[in-house]
C-alpha cells in the first residue's frame, strides 16, 4: 500500500521558477520584521515545494507536516501561492494583528500540527499515518503523510523512538524528508558530531528504505520518492545548503535567525536565480 505521488506531470522547470519566486517572497517579508528563519527555509525550499506540487495528491487526502518548525516560511509562501493562506496573512507575519508566527500553529489554514520544538514532528506523523491507514481500512490509497525534518532534530532521542515505531508499524504511507544542510547553531554537524553520520545506514538499520539525493534538485527528490521500492516507511535524505540561493547566507550560522538589512536585501535580490541543482 505504498502511496503513489499525486502528479505524474511534475515539472522541475516549474519548480525552479516557483522556488525562486518563493525565496524572493521570503526576502520581502524579512524586511517587515527583525528576524525570521530565512536560511532554514531556503534550505528546505525544494523539498517542501516537491511535496506540495509533486508528491501530495491534489484532493487533499495527503498531509504535510513541517517538523522543523523554523522552516515554516517555506510552507507559508507555498500555502499563499496555493490560496490557502492570504497575502495579508504573510504581510502581517509576526505582528499582533496577524495569525502567523515564526513557527507553525495548528488551527491556522493549511497547518496540520504545531511544531517549533524539535523532535516532535516524527511521532505525530507516525500517529497521523496510523490514523489514515485505519480510516482507509488498510487500503493502498490511504492518506500519505510527508514530514520534513531538520537534520538537527534527528539528534533528538524522540525522533528515533518514532523512527523505530514507523517501521515496527509498517507505515508505508509515511515519507520523511530530512533537510540535511549539515549545520546547527554551534557549527557544522559533520565536525561537531561526526558520529551523527552515516544517517542512511542508521535509518536502514531501523527498518526504513532510504535514499540520499541533492535536496535542491526537485527532479531528483520527486523521482526518488516516486520510484521507491515501498513496503517500508521511506526517508529521503536531501543534501542541502543552509541559506541556499543567497551567497552571504550560505553556511553562515547567524542567518539561522537574522533578517537582512535593506542593503543586504538588495544584494540578495540581485543574486537570486533559478537553482538548477
Amino acid at each position: 500500500m505504498t502511496a503513489k505521488p499525486g502528479h505524474n506531470s511534475f515539472d522541475p522547470t516549474d519548480s525552479r521558477k516557483r522556488c525562486m519566486k518563493y525565496r524572493k517572497r521570503i526576502l520581502d517579508i524579512s524586511q517587515n520584521v527583525s528576524a525570521l528563519h530565512a536560511a532554514g527555509a531556503f534550505s528546505c525550499m525544494e523539498l517542501t515545494d516537491t511535496c506540495y506540487h509533486g508528491l501530495m495528491r491534489p484532493d487533499g487526502q495527503d498531509t504535510f507536516l513541517m517538523s522543523k518548525g523554523h522552516g515554516c516560511m517555506a510552507q507559508y509562501v507555498i500555502l499563499e501561492d496555493r490560496g490557502v493562506l492570504e497575502k495579508k496573512h504573510l504581510d502581517e507575519y509576526c505582528t499582533p494583528h496577524g495569525i502567523l508566527g515564526a513557527h507553525p500553529d495548528y488551527g491556522n489554514p493549511g497547518i496540520e500540527a504545531s511544531t517549533g520544538s524539535l523532535g516532535h514532528g516524527m511521532a505525530m506523523a507516525v500517529g497521523m499515518a496510523v490514523a489514515e491507514r485505519n480510516k482507509a481500512g488498510g487500503a493502498a490509497d490511504a492518506g500519505a503523510v510527508y514530514c520534513v525534518l531538520s537534520d538537527g532534530e534527528v539528534q533528538e532521542g524522540s525522533t528515533w523512538e518514532a523512527f523505530m515505531m514507523a517501521s515496527t508499524l509498517g507505515l508505508t504511507n509515511l515519507v520523511a524528508l530530512i533537510d540535511n544542510n549539515d549545520f546547527q547553531s554551534l557549527g557544522r554537524t559533520s565536525e561537531t558530531h561526526p558520529s551523527f553520520y552515516p544517517l542512511d545506514e542508521k535509518l536502514e538499520a531501523f527498518g526504513w528504505e532510504t535514499v540520499i539525493v541533492n535536496g535542491h534538485d526537485a527532479d531528483a527528490v520527486y523521482s526518488a520518492v516516486a520510484s521507491r521500492k515501498g513496503g517500508k516507511p521511506f526517508c529521503l535524505i536531501g543534501r542541502t545548503t543552509k541559506g541556499k540561493g543567497v551567497s552571504y547566507m550560505e553556511n553562515v550560522p547567524i542567518w539561522h535567525y537574522r533578517s537582512p538589512s535593506p542593503d543586504e536585501y538588495k544584494q540578495a535580490l540581485a543574486e537570486l536565480k533559478e537553482i538548477a541543482s
Binding site: 506523523a125 507516525v126 500517529g127 490514523a131 523512538e161 523505530m164 515505531m165
Partner: peptide
C-alpha cells in the same frame, strides 16, 4: 518509548481519533 507514545497519540487525535 514514552515520548513516541504521546506524539503518536497527538497525531492520531489530529486525524480525528
Amino acid at each position: 518509548a514514552e515520548q513516541a507514545m504521546i506524539g503518536i497519540c497527538a497525531g492520531l487525535a489530529l486525524k480525528g481519533m
